[in-house]
């Protein structure tokens, strides 16, 4: 029982980062209808940039963190302007392929610049000391990660709910033409969506980088996002958060209980098995909008 609780708690922590990245993904999908296969590479770039600023250039962590966020925002803006905007109106296959190609480009650039070794934040930012939470033993860095992830989730949820920009983003997601006729610049909303999508992923990268160190495998976070958003429903930001947490817990539990039978590594594919099952049973997820088509 204690093991089980332990698995749930660590799963929730990783799940909170999934939720953060999935929120960025869902946001981009919701307002631009582009499915972003490069989300994981944003995580990767965020983690590496922050590590590089902090460990190699000795920038104080607060500034490194803020600078990484600024860089991520600019990266989102530039990519949107140069690559995604020409794709408006192109077939879905082309749009999917361009984000896959973008993922390849970002990933290979990171390997060329920083190599493939596992890098750690030195000196460590959060202590690894274990803390007793009732029956469960959690290291301090996990708690910080969980806290930060939820801080960002909360801030952005409030942003969408209450600010003028956030409301205009929701309007564009709802109906682009109507939003445009109300004087909302759709192009600007697209740009903002991409920069926020890149920003939250970069934060996710920094948080995970503090737990396990940084290497190219960080990009896999972007792949785990798919089960999360499919579970929650592609259009729903709340769904992405719930989906992220669920997938984090599920992969942890399935990984530790099924590894003996299937020979290891179940954690890597458990989310995808869940994904296929959801697609077969409830393809539009928990909170997704069911498409109704008229001829």
């Amino acid at each position: 029982m204690q093991d089980f609780l332990q698995l749930i708690v660590t799963g929730l922590v990783i799940g909170s980062v999934y939720a953060l990245v999935a929120m960025g993904f869902a946001l981009i999908y919701k307002s631009t209808s582009i499915i972003n296969f490069a989300q994981g590479e944003f995580v990767l770039v965020g983690g590496y940039v922050c590590w590089w600023l902090y460990t190699s250039l000795h920038v104080p962590i607060i500034w490194a963190f803020l600078l990484t966020m600024v860089i991520a925002v600019f990266m989102g803006l530039i990519l949107e302007r140069l690559m995604l905007r020409p794709m408006i109106g192109e077939p879905i296959i082309s749009v999917i392929m361009i984000t896959i190609a973008l993922a390849m480009v970002l990933k290979s650039m990171v390997t060329i610049l920083w190599g493939t070794m596992i890098e750690v934040f030195t000196p460590p930012i959060f202590s690894q000391q274990a803390i007793h939470l009732g029956p469960v033993l959690v290291s301090e860095v996990y708690l910080w990660t969980f806290g930060f992830a939820f801080l960002f989730l909360g801030v952005f949820a409030a942003f969408f709910k209450f600010t003028r920009v956030g409301i205009s983003m929701r309007a564009v997601a709802d109906d682009q033409q109507v939003a445009q006729s109300m004087g909302i610049s759709v192009k600007r909303v697209f740009a903002i969506s991409w920069s926020i999508g890149a920003l939250v992923s970069a934060v996710g990268g920094i948080l995970v980088g503090n737990i396990n160190g940084i290497n190219i495998a960080l990009a896999d976070f972007g792949l785990k996002v798919f089960p999360a958003v499919i579970l929650g429903g592609l259009e729903s930001i709340a769904g992405a958060i719930i989906g992220g947490l669920t997938i984090g817990v599920l992969e942890n539990i399935m990984g530790s209980y099924l590894d003996i039978y299937l020979g290891g590594g179940v954690k890597e594919i458990a989310p995808f098995i869940v994904l296929i099952m959801i697609l077969m049973i409830k393809p539009y997820g928990l909170f997704g909008i069911k498409e109704i088509e008229r001829v």
Binding site: L102, M104, S108, M109, T111
Partner: peptide
């Protein structure tokens, strides 16, 4: 990595 980079750029 260079090859992958070039592949990506060509596709884009």
């Amino acid at each position: 990595s260079l090859r992958e980079l070039l592949f990506g750029l060509i596709v884009i």
